[in-house]
């Protein structure tokens, strides 16, 4: 009896402790999980209120029409209106032109600079690197105003071109539909090439130098090395920069407003500027403006998917 009793007691004690321990651990885990939610909850709520909820609202607005706060549902009218709206078509065309010319131009330039600057034998390397990166410290509005003056009819670019005999008479860059677009593209490229270059430079430092040595021994030219080693090695970072640049250029606003204000006519207007004008410059039509804004959303999604596909296939 007594032996059994002591045995029982001996067995009982650890059992209970184990049970309690596991219970404590369970509540501990549970508590820890809850605390984890506390860390993220404010951000989750804020992003929901200031990003996702407005996204849904904009979608609903895109089926409404009316002036200011007097909105009513009009079905697909806004979406139909898009295709017959010359300003929207101009904005879409311009934005597409910026995208197709500026993004590839900038990425190729940035890649080129980074490869040249990655050469260990190059002199004045940090000078070149800092110089090319410098435009990134300016605010978009500030450099836009500077570019507007540089390319003005009596601006310094015109004076330079005339003095060196490149052109017979001044070009009114910002009043010409073609040249105004060129100025916008040059401006964005000036501002962002160095930014992208820094990403490529960092990625190049992780590329094993011996690959290039081996390629050289095999007789590969610099161009072959560039296209067959550098580009494939940097593919993930090229994908990243081309997606961010695409999203950025699709939304271009600051430069257009401050360099040309969309002119001459609507020759440089971008989708974002048109949305702004529809909402805050003309008689406000929030419904139709939201429809136009959803075009950017759709474009961002489509282009991102295409870029991921293209990058994926080449693997």
């Amino acid at each position: 009896m007594s032996q059994l009793g002591t045995k029982k007691a001996e067995v009982d004690l650890p059992v209970r402790t184990k049970y309690e321990e596991s219970r404590r651990q369970k509540t501990g885990v549970f508590f820890k999980k809850k605390v984890g939610w506390l860390f993220i909850i404010v951000s989750v709520i804020a992003i929901t209120i200031f990003n996702f909820y407005p996204m849904v609202q904009a979608f609903l607005l895109s089926f409404q029409s009316g002036m200011g706060a007097n909105l009513e549902y009009v079905g697909l009218d806004n979406w139909r209106r898009l295709f017959g709206d010359p300003t929207f078509i101009a904005a879409l065309t311009n934005t597409t032109i910026y995208l197709l010319i500026q993004v590839p131009l900038m990425i190729v330039l940035a890649l080129f600079f980074s490869v040249l600057l990655n050469d260990p034998k190059l002199k004045f390397k940090s000078f070149f690197r800092i110089a090319i990166f410098l435009p990134c410290v300016t605010s978009l509005v500030a450099y836009s105003v500077v570019f507007k003056y540089l390319f003005g009819i009596d601006g310094i670019v015109n004076q330079f071109l005339i003095n060196f005999g490149f052109i017979p008479q001044t070009i009114n860059f910002l009043a010409d539909p073609f040249w105004a677009k060129v100025v916008i593209i040059l401006a964005i490229t000036w501002r962002w090439t160095g930014y992208n270059m820094i990403f490529y430079l960092a990625a190049l430092q992780n590329v094993d130098k011996s690959i290039y040595e081996a390629a050289k021994i095999d007789g590969a030219s610099s161009f072959q090395q560039f296209f067959q080693i550098t580009v494939p090695m940097l593919k993930p970072i090229i994908l990243f920069t081309s997606i961010t640049s695409t999203i950025g250029t699709l939304q271009i606003f600051d430069e257009i407003v401050n360099i040309t204000n969309g002119g001459p006519g609507n020759a440089t207007i971008s989708i974002s500027q048109y949305i702004y004008n529809l909402s805050f410059e003309y008689t406000p039509d929030f419904g139709y403006a939201s429809t136009v804004s959803y075009v950017i959303v759709i474009l961002v999604v489509i282009l991102s998917i295409i870029q991921f596909r293209v990058a994926g296939e080449k693997k």
Binding site: P54, Q57, I275, I296
Partner: peptide
């Protein structure tokens, strides 16, 4: 949400 263009949520 990083892909949401600001122009799309500015009106709401």
């Amino acid at each position: 949400s990083m892909m949401i263009p600001f122009a799309a949520i500015m009106i709401p």
